[in-house]
Write a protein that binds this DNA or RNA. Structure first.
Lengths: 203, 203, 203, 203
DNA sequence: GATGAATGAGGGTTCATTCAT
DNA sequence: TATGAATGAACCCTCATTCAT
């Protein structure tokens, strides 16, 4: 069991580093965030990080993957196909908002690195850019799946699902940004209601 | 008049540098874009840039300011209070879309640097981050003014204007991103129509 | 002509860096020689070197190539097929000895990096290792060519030329090392005579 | 006796580390060989090595000393002054060749670190560089002693013994390198014969 | 004004060595 | 004694900025 303790400690330390990185990366883009600062925040020497991650990029990728998994788990309930589509949309919207508003750092990272979604593949794309891209695509697919199920149920009848998905994502983003900027502070269920009301009904 | 020619040339040269910077910054975030690359694209020596701008940041700020002014001029027609509110909204939407779709580089810069909307609470804020922030706020104010005028006219009756502004901005952004990603390619007037349709009517 | 002066200065500076590198690399193997030390010796800032060479390895490769070319030019006279084979051998031996004894640093570099000749290709071979290898092979080929021409003339009749080349190279190396260690200080022509006397005659 | 077993185990462990180091150092120069890799090959933790050697250099020195002792023992029979000089030379040549061809790793280490023969005039000399130097000098002395005894017996009559020693060493090295590079594969006694034939007879 | 060589601070990364367990 | 996590010095390299020409 001694072995087990060491492993536990190792995992904990690894997590501390990821958390430190998360905080720093929420304020600075990848290239501006220094390992020095991350190490400092984790109260470690710079070199120590390399015992846990292959390099700066690996650390960042691990962070993104972990956070995306966590986001995905939060949204999972909305994937239950047994639920009514409209209910799935409500659950999803609430889960997404709650997740991000409880965890603003992640969203800041997303915003800070959003440029990477768009940047054309000039030269080699950094691995971490690919990862971010993947996560975004997966998130969009989830949105789209739920939206399509709503359409099958008669909502937003004649609109292009791609377009609807984009708009949905844009509205969510606006709300989160508004919250971040202190322009909005309603409780989450109220926000969800407001958002759903905005969506074009089929009727 | 020789003096005047010199000035004209100087302004032209300055403009070339800004254009080069714009192109580079649409592909890379501030810290990844090098003066070397900008100078190369402007067909100048690195040192020459310092004859026109105090430093890298100053160049970036000048770029942002200039672009924002240009954007503002494009949207100006919608500020005419003599027009019908709904028409103002249509004009604004069309102007914004047209401006950005004709000028994707600027939007890429915006996306690439969007993280800076979120003001870091600690440490020094780069001057250019503050500028970007200012521009965004001014744009939001323009949106809000038009939206409020619509509300006075009976549209979106009971909604919070702040919230509506955010949503409007989010929808615009979605459409531009969809366009960039090749997911959308309808002509602009059609897009405007789609967007306005989405907005909740008063009725 | 101003341009020409700049170019001239550039080449001169480049040469200074190579010379500094040569001195340092004659004392330390590649991995132990630091750019810091090279820059210091060239009386330049570390960063300046990167204006002249892509990186440390590029600098080293340029050095090796330059030195090998220079060595080759020194040995060139022995390649004249119009000469009597035995005379060619004498000329070559004298040229090689004179070149290295006048230019001990290069030989030190060779010795300091000799390990790379043998190291099996585990993983990727550094580019500079390949270059060193190439130079050595070319040198051996020159030796062999002259030796074979001697054999055709009746010298060392029945020996394997490969073997003879190795031995020749080994003897040369011994003499240079002896000189370096201060064990030998005869004038070069005397050394050449001594060496040639050692070689097995055909008779 | 428990104590004795402990000691035995300790020595064995120490030996394992030296062997691992030998293998690694035959492929990489001192500064490129990492303790990590040595420890891995010895199936030990990095820190454990410090229980057996003061530091990396101490380990390297121990290795060199041990190998040199072993080499010396192999050559010992040739030091018997009761034998005929020519026979001593034959025995020595065969012993040296056999030792190195059976133990190529050591020779690779020698080649990889040969640069250290040339004592840097400035700065601090690594202790291990001095050791290598010492070993080489001792080896040369052994060669010289046998060669001088041959001369007293009338061989190579009028040559400078220092010169002959160097040449002898050079020829030996050539043969070993030829073997390593796959250019030579005769059985050892045949090689010895070839070498001795090369050496200038007195007659 | 234009040039581009030179600078040097600062970042990512490696690795010998130490030390608590 | 064995372990391997932690340390931090030192290395290579980049790039904004300066300055002599």
């Amino acid at each position: 069991m001694t072995e087990s303790r060491r492993e536990r400690e190792r995992r904990a330390r690894r997590q501390e580093i990821i958390s430190a990185a998360k905080e720093v990366l929420s304020r600075k883009p990848f290239n501006e965030a220094t390992l020095e600062e991350i190490a400092e925040r984790a109260e470690l020497a710079k070199g120590t990080i390399y015992g846990y991650f292959k390099n700066k990029e690996d650390l960042f990728i691990s962070l993104i993957k972990q956070e995306f998994d966590s986001w995905r788990r939060a949204v999972e309930p909305a994937l239950d196909e047994g639920l009514a589509p409209r209910e799935r949309l409500r659950i999803m919207t609430e889960a997404v908002l709650r997740y991000h508003l409880d965890n603003l750092d992640l969203y800041k990272i997303y915003l800070t690195h959003m440029g990477f979604i768009i940047i054309p593949k000039e030269g080699m794309l950094h691995e971490y850019q690919r990862i971010i891209n993947d996560c975004l695509k997966k998130a969009m697919e989830i949105y789209r799946e739920v939206i399509i199920s709503c359409q099958k149920d008669g909502l937003f009848k004649d609109k292009d699902p791609q377009f609807l998905t984009l708009v949905y994502q844009g509205v969510i983003q606006s709300v989160i940004m508004g919250w971040m900027m202190g322009l909005i502070d309603k409780p989450i269920p109220k926000l969800v209601e407001d958002i759903l009301e905005l969506l074009p009904e089929s009727s």
